[in-house]
Structure formats: structure tokens, C-alpha cells
């Protein structure tokens, strides 16, 4: 509560947005008025009391599909972010602590991976691999972990040169102690902000892939796929495709508002000391 009070209004809006999306995703099964794949009306019916957001290109209730779509989109994005984070952080901290050839090999490999644009990388790999959910999550996580690695290493390298890490080394502490007890607690706030950013990015990225037909496969609902399903309606003036598109934007904006506040907070911590 204390923390929410200290938040600027923008961060509070972000928090509210994230909460609404999470709530509707978690309770989709209870809240959704119709089933995920249930055809309930005509194609592209406008919004009415019966169908709050109208119906989609096959006559399914858009609101229900939005809620189930929230489930898929948020769950897959979160899974990919958690995975990419764990991998990226661990490897980057290891590189920073070990230095020498471990660092060289990991960093150069990372440079190589980062030299390929993410979307192109994903498209090429997904073209060759079978279309399965776990592969999608893995590919997203792997690509994203390169960005986490870069930040994690930069943060960790700054911490590793601190005298308290040297003191732990001189004491004879093992690598895992140094990574998890000395570095991690001090890297947490920049990394927390980065996690938010990566999650927002994962939502956008997953949606883009689905939109291009390479992410989540129909008939399962997910926001990017729903844009693809309903895009042809635009020519007839049917805005159904804009609803999932808007939801993606709203979720990403909400997360970014919180991240922005987190980043400002950490930077004012750093900049707060001057010779006064």
C-alpha cells in the first residue's frame, strides 16, 4: 500500500491495466459468456447486449475469445520471458564471474545471435521446425535471452568489480554464492524493470508471429491470431481486428508505464548522490 501511494498516476494506471488483464485471463473459464470455439451468431455481428464486442469472422463471441486469448497470450509470453530471463541471467552472471574464455565464448556467441534480427531469426527457425507450442516458447525464449544476456552481463560486470565481491572471493566463497548472494540481490531492480520490458516485448512478438501465421495455431484463441482472422473485415469497415490489436497495445502500455516508473526510481537512486 505504501508503495502504491508513492507511485505516480501513470504507474497506477499501468498497475490497474495489468491487473484487469490478469484477472480476465485467470478467470476466463468462469467469466466468459460463451465457449472459446463455440459458434453463436452470424459473421461479424456488431456489438450488442448479447455479444458485447460483437462476433468474429466465424460467428464466435469476440468477448469470450478475447478472454481465452488473454489466457494464451499472457501465459505463453510469461513462460517465454521467465525462461529467457533465467537462462540469460544465469549465463550472463556466469560470464561476468568467470571472465576469461568462458566470458569470451558466451559473449561472442551472443554477439553472433544478436546480429540476426529477432523476427527474421524466428521466422527462419520456425519455418524449419515442427509447429508445436513448446518449440514456439523455446524459440522465443532463446532469442530473447540474448538481450537479457547483454544487459545482465553489463550489470554484473559493474557489480563484480565491487570490493564486496572481491571480499567474498578472498574469503573463499564459491561461484554460486557469489552469483546468487552477492550479485543477484544488487542487480534486482534494473533486472525487474528489464523483465517488464521483455514481457511486453514477448507479448508483441508472439502476437506478430501469430499474425504472420507462425505462432499459436487456430482454432485456439490468441490475440495476434485473432487480428489475422478478422483482418479482412477491415475492408468492409468491420473493426473486429482492432479489438485484439488494441488489447495487445493496452497490455504493453500498462507494463511499460510500470517499467518506466521502476527505471526512474532506480536512476534517481543512482543520481541522488552529489557533493552537496
Amino acid at each position: 500500500m505504501q508503495m502504491i501511494k508513492a507511485m505516480p498516476w501513470s504507474a497506477r494506471i499501468g498497475l490497474l491495466g495489468v491487473f484487469i488483464f490478469l484477472f480476465s485471463a485467470v478467470f476466463a473459464d468462469v467469466l466468459a459468456p460463451y465457449g472459446e470455439r463455440e459458434i453463436v451468431g452470424d459473421v461479424w455481428e456488431p456489438s450488442s447486449a448479447k455479444y458485447l464486442m460483437g462476433t468474429d469472422n466465424l460467428g464466435r463471441d469476440l468477448l469470450s475469445r478475447m478472454m481465452y486469448g488473454a489466457q494464451t497470450t499472457i501465459f505463453i509470453s510469461a513462460a517465454a520471458s521467465v525462461l529467457s530471463f533465467s537462462l540469460g541471467i544465469f549465463l550472463s552472471f556466469l560470464a561476468a564471474v568467470m571472465r576469461g574464455w568462458t566470458d569470451q565464448v558466451l559473449s561472442r556467441l551472443n554477439d553472433l545471435m544478436m546480429a540476426i534480427p529477432t523476427l527474421i531469426f524466428a521466422l527462419v527457425v520456425l519455418a524449419a521446425l515442427p509447429q508445436e507450442l513448446w518449440i514456439l516458447v523455446l524459440v522465443m525464449a532463446l532469442i530473447d535471452s540474448t538481450r537479457v544476456f547483454r544487459l545482465g552481463r553489463a550489470v554484473a560486470v559493474d557489480i563484480v568489480v565491487m570490493d564486496y565481491v572481491e571480499a567474498a572471493r578472498l574469503r573463499g566463497e564459491g561461484r554460486m554464492w557469489i552469483i546468487f548472494r552477492e550479485i543477484l540481490p544488487n542487480a534486482l531492480s534494473p533486472l525487474l524493470a528489464e523483465f517488464g520490458l521483455r514481457f511486453a516485448f514477448a507479448v508483441l512478438f508472439l502476437s506478430s508471429l501469430s499474425f504472420l501465421g507462425l505462432g499459436i495455431q487456430p482454432p485456439e484463441a490468441d490475440w495476434g491470431g485473432m487480428v489475422k482472422d478478422n483482418k479482412d473485415g477491415i475492408i468492409f469497415g468491420v473493426p473486429a481486428a482492432l479489438i485484439p490489436g488494441g488489447a495487445i497495445a493496452a497490455l504493453a502500455i500498462s507494463v511499460n508505464l510500470i517499467v518506466d516508473w521502476l527505471l526512474n526510481r532506480t536512476s534517481s537512486l543512482k543520481g541522488g548522490r552529489g557533493d552537496v
Binding site: A200, K231, I253
Partner: peptide
């Protein structure tokens, strides 16, 4: 900040 969060297809459509 808002613009960063907009997916291309939302803006486009």
C-alpha cells in the same frame, strides 16, 4: 511510451 507499445498491425489497420 504508448507508441512503443503499439503493434504494427494495430496502427496499420
Amino acid at each position: 511510451l504508448g507508441a512503443i507499445s503499439l503493434p504494427e498491425f494495430f496502427t496499420g489497420y
